[in-house]
Computed example of a mutant assay.
Amino acid sequence: MEIEVRHLRALCAIADTGSLHRAARQLGLAQPSLSTQLRRIEEEVGGALFLRARTGCRPTPLGRLVLSRARPLVADMSALVAEARAAAVAGPQPRIGSTASRALAGWLRRLRHAQHEPSLHMDVSPNALLRMVAHGHLDVAFVHEVEGHPLRIPEVLRVRVLMHREPQFVSLPADHPAAGKTVVDLNDLADDRWMVDPAVDGEWDGVHRMLRAAGLNPPVLHGDYHTAASLVATGQVVTVCQPTSLSRPETAVRRLHGDPLGVRLLVAARSDTDLDDVYPALEDAYWETARESVVYHQWLQQHLGRGSLTRAG
């Protein structure tokens, strides 16, 4: 007997309902049929998956192990069926991957207005997203490439550059002495702890090179974006951030003097057609987000010129 998705779905139903009778009713089966099916599954895996008692069915240790693997498979299959049904009605919808960006909300909104219903896969690793596009698991990826740390772009991909060099700003506590400045020098932050996310391709190397070039060797903590935001807000660290980030009551986003760290923003797909379907919406969303950040908007006007911002409003 080969175990199929329907068998895994039956195991999940038994565990969820705690009863062969209720699980059979949920699955639309006769209880004897479900009992026979369970017995054959247990013979296949080589052990009992449930303890049967008058009070119901409880997973055995082996059952818990099998269920831990079965549940995500059943969920993935349900998602696949739902996605396929939606595609059959409306046509294939874009599968988008992205690293963190404030432009995402506007991008997805524009695609939905154009009668797309994209799926979204987030990952801190640009290289991982590019591999997913190359292998056909995603249609498009919007990623960033940290200066000095080139991404490994598979040869099969087509790439468009949204920003050749987006300067990275700094997020610091609102009551930090340097928060009163429009432009912050790295030496103003010499006594601060920094936080970086080492899981982001190139981020630690980029920040380390930036600090070393300034002659600084501060304590560096490792953490994700959410942790960094919390620690900045409580005055414990400073961190590099995207220039589209917005200041909040507890935090201030400022430009770094000389723009010592930058990233390149890329969009990758397996064909120009895939890029054409989603790139204009992303471009519009990015410039909309850039205008919302006063500091970044001013930087763009200074470095790209007012004419370069005309198409973005």
Rank of each mutant, 00 (worst) to 15 (best):
E166W: 00
H176K: 07
M132I: 01
G148N: 05
D139S: 09
L130D: 04
L162S: 06
H149Q: 13
A179Q: 03
V133D: 13
L157Y: 02
S171E: 15
Q168H: 13
G180V: 04
R131A: 15
A178E: 08
R158W: 02
E155K: 09
E147M: 03
V146D: 00
R160W: 13
R160N: 10
V170I: 15
G148E: 07
A174T: 01
A174I: 02
H135C: 07
P173C: 08
G180Y: 02
V140T: 14
I153T: 14
D175C: 07
P150C: 04
E166S: 13
H137R: 15
H149G: 01
M132P: 00
H144C: 13
P167S: 12
G180E: 12
G136E: 12
V161G: 03
P167E: 08
E145W: 04
H176M: 05
M163I: 00
R131E: 14
R165N: 08
H176C: 05
M163S: 04
L172A: 04
H135D: 13
D139R: 09
V161N: 01
A134V: 03
G180N: 09
H176V: 01
L157K: 05
A134S: 15
F169M: 13
V140D: 06
D139N: 14
L151C: 10
P177R: 01
R131F: 07
H164Q: 14
P167Y: 07
L172S: 10
E166G: 03
L172T: 02
V156D: 12
R165S: 15
M163G: 00
A134T: 02
H137E: 15
R160V: 15
D175P: 00
L172E: 02
F142E: 00
S171L: 14
L138D: 09
P177A: 06
E166L: 13
R160P: 05
L151S: 10
L138T: 09
P173Q: 08
A178T: 09
M132S: 11
S171V: 11
Q168T: 11
V159C: 03
A141N: 09
H144Y: 13
Q168I: 11
L138M: 10
R165H: 09
V133P: 15
P173A: 14
A174L: 02
G148D: 05
P150F: 04
I153Y: 03
E166C: 11
G148S: 08
R165C: 14
L157Q: 04
L172F: 06
D175G: 06
R158P: 00
R152E: 12
R158Y: 02
D139I: 07
L138F: 12
H176R: 05
L130M: 04
P154V: 02
D175N: 10
Q168L: 15
A178F: 05
V159I: 12
P167W: 06
P154L: 02
D139A: 12
E155F: 04
L151W: 06
V156I: 11
G136Y: 12
V140E: 08
